[in-house]
Design a protein around this nucleic acid. Structure first.
Length: 147
DNA sequence: CCTGTGATTGTTAGT
DNA sequence: ACTAACAATCACAGG
């Protein structure tokens, strides 16, 4: 609630500024991403794997801006192409359009992703803190006692 | 009936 | 700094 007011003050300026910082932060990471010319591993895609209990309470990676755009784009795509139900084709179309999108247009999606990232960061901090505090509780009370 | 696949880019943690 | 893997979605297929 409080931060909402400050953000509303600056229309695009605030958003852009946030994005700028976000971009700057990932600027380094971005470079590496672009360099990925070593597709040694080329899985057919789809890296879905079963939820391994790595730590039990490890915060999962938040959806990226692209995913938010996908969510929105998917709605429009289904409206115009109700025949296409497969997400695979949408992904291609969305990805192609995503590249054509301009910075300003992506800003709004990046902005959402940035917020999600912050939330994730909090969960991560709490998680790490808890971990250092007294080792992670792997017990997670499994089925021993119902809650 | 349930699980895995397939496709997209972006972000994160780990080494 | 770089690498590898994973994040959501939704329809379809296989066991």
């Amino acid at each position: 609630m409080t931060k909402k007011a400050s953000e509303s003050v600056t229309n695009s300026g605030g958003s852009v500024r946030n994005l700028d910082l976000a971009v700057k932060s990932s600027e380094e990471a971005r470079r590496s991403t672009r360099l990925r010319l070593k597709p040694l591993r080329k899985p057919k895609t789809s890296q879905k794997k079963k939820p391994s209990k790595l730590h039990g309470k490890m915060p999962k990676k938040p959806a990226t801006a692209f995913f938010f755009f996908l969510e929105d784009f998917r709605k429009h795509y289904q409206e115009e192409n109700p025949e296409v139900k497969s997400m695979r084709e949408i992904g291609k179309t969305c990805g192609e359009k995503w590249k054509t999108m301009t910075y300003e247009e992506k800003v709004k999606y990046y902005d959402i992703a940035t917020e999600k990232r912050e939330e994730f960061h909090r969960a991560m901090t709490d998680f790490t803190k808890r971990m250092q505090s007294g080792e992670y509780d792997e017990s997670e009370t499994d089925s021993d006692f119902s809650e």
